[in-house]
Design a protein around this nucleic acid. Structure first.
Lengths: 343, 343
DNA sequence: ATTTAGCACTCTGACACACCGAGTGCTATT
DNA sequence: AATAGCACTCGGTGTGTCAGAGTGCTAAAT
């Protein structure tokens, strides 16, 4: 459904959206006429605004206030009006430096990235780690912490590390555990974690294995180790979003936080953002999470060296600085991909 | 500085504190007289309240409102008035079940614990992981992810796992890495992580090592691996605390969140809570974190199997349900200690 | 000597009212 | 088609009044 709008209408709509984004106050006809000095009288602007309202692009909170953009207007704005800002040199430097600095494991990088997103956008940064299950298995290791208490460590190709504490049924020696580890490493080489899991489960029922005590035990233990957990998700900058005037109403804030505490749901819903390349923008009720909360979501996916895919983005009010946040998300996703991708 | 108070004054103070905790509204003389039917007239109560105010235990927001307790009053309340509630059977079950359930690594247990604390108290739950540096070294492992890209995994005795991505200077084979790992494991056996770090640094300067290429490289790499990071800290339940009426003022909330984003500071400050055994209570300006925010902090430490010590607790408004939160924190700390301690 | 009843006083919060200003819609005019 | 003018609308602010809750003090009662 393409919208037919005269250039002038488009210009006025753009002015209104941007004014509203900047001020969070309903914008009136005079201020549009004045500030965006397009040699039009306020009366003319009013006529146009009336049209735009009829088309469902604007609403007025009450009779004699200015207009505010509807979701539809934001949609139109990001689709065909917005002039994307360049990511500034400073911002680029910041993004790269903070990715590198943390120099530690994958998790640290992702966490820092979500913080970076929040800082640069002034909204909430969010990063979903590449799904562990789909990543290629790299290494498994069993470590004896105490009698019958075994720590299993799984490493995937892109550097994700998961660990689980296992209550063993028997008193293994560390040597036993090493043997078991070697066996398993060989068994599942080259598979994804999920495939490895399936293989282990099916292998357990095979007869010839049954007779080898140690191997059976190895499978038993590893079964506990490769339980698929929901993927990690990093959210930063809750404090920052509290500064937005629309969230001075606390109850709204609560809804959002609630949504984040149900990380499981969130993940499932956001999973769909990961299918396609490029930046995705969800405005208001388009967002997969708690609708009615008046938030927008800008996401992009990133790809790791082993071709697993994660997601990062920014969450803010619908009245969001799209022109600057979109490029930031885009650039960050590319940088993270590059950092994780190249050797 | 022991406060001298007649039994009646104590009783009235207790009534006021508890009323205020329950309602968050200034409490007046009549309601005390009525609700805590101690056969006293409101006038008498008023006299007593005037005394208490003079002693700095109560204040009135304005002339004709009820009184509210001061920090000093809360202090006195928790020191000598409060009747601690028992932890209910349900709560106990909940605490234990949720510790167990997560069955995964140490980090997961601690994270879940902080969530449990938040749920049961209705405030914010906080857990600080046992300091990695002071824990006994258990295992180090190097895994080759890509050429020159080495993942180092450190495991401590109590099951903490840390991993770091290292850019190696040379192209090692996985075999080289295993050899290096073995060497290091032997070298630092039985030391704490911090000691291990020191040993590695000093060993690098020793002459005889200089001639063994591989060993030098091993030390080089491990130097990067054993960088001491600030300890992990888990905070859950920000949404919950927003429901407290005193935080309907958003700016307050922001201050607290800010404090939590500077986790480094927080950690240092809270470190002192860990020195002594038992439950510690910090009221208002006594809290090591952002004073003036009107929050209280109840903490207790827990001990792992390898005798490292962590901290857990609850953060809420000064007007906090001490009678129930204190036992919950106490009990949870004991349970976590037991769970992590016994095999 | 303590407790209580009574009373005058104070302060907040709610409600009503008027007013100002920003903004609109419509109509007549350019 | 664009604009100027005008009547109208509505939210926000400021003022005044009033009821209610609570206090402090004093005098009476126990």
């Amino acid at each position: 459904m393409e919208l037919e709008l005269s250039p002038r209408s488009r210009q006025i709509l753009e002015a209104i959206v941007e004014d509203y984004i900047a001020t969070a106050e309903p914008v009136g006809s005079t201020s549009v006429a004045r500030r965006h000095a397009m040699s039009l009288s306020s009366a003319t602007v009013r006529n146009v605004m009336a049209n735009l309202e009829e088309m469902g692009l604007l609403t007025s909170p009450h009779t004699s206030a200015g207009r505010i953009p509807t979701e539809k207007a934001y949609r139109f704005y990001v689709d065909s009006l917005v002039a994307l800002r360049q990511v500034s040199r400073d911002e680029k430097r910041d993004i790269i430096r903070r990715c590198r600095k943390s120099g530690a494991g994958l998790n640290d990088i992702l966490k820092e990235t979500s913080r970076t997103l929040s800082t640069l956008s002034n909204y909430m940064g969010i990063v979903i780690a590449p799904s562990f299950g789909t990543d290629v298995f790299r290494h498994i290791e069993f470590i004896l912490l105490a009698p019958r208490k075994v720590l299993a460590i799984l490493v995937s190709q892109n550097g994700s590390v998961q660990n689980r504490l296992i209550d063993a049924e028997k008193d293994f020696s560390q040597n036993d555990l090493v043997t078991m580890g070697n066996y398993l490493n060989e068994l599942v080489q080259g598979l994804t974690i999920a495939q490895a899991r399936d293989l282990i489960l099916s292998e357990m029922t095979r007869e010839k294995v049954q007779y080898d005590q140690l191997l059976t035990q190895a499978l038993r233990i590893s079964e506990q180790a490769v339980v698929l957990e929901p993927d990690d998700i990093y959210v930063e900058g809750q404090a920052r979003i509290l500064e937005q005037p629309e969230f001075s109403d606390v109850s709204r804030m609560r809804d959002i936080f609630r949504a984040f505490e149900e990380k499981g749901d969130l993940l499932k819903l956001l999973g769909q953002c990961m299918v396609a390349e490029g930046v995705h923008i969800y405005i208001g009720s388009e967002t997969p999470l708690s609708r009615s909360a008046g938030v927008s979501l800008i996401t992009s996916r990133f790809i790791t060296g082993s071709n697993t895919v994660g997601m990062l983005g920014v969450i803010g009010p619908t009245r969001m600085g799209y022109s600057s946040v979109i490029p930031i998300v885009d650039y960050t996703a590319k940088m993270v991909s590059r950092l994780l991708g190249s050797g």
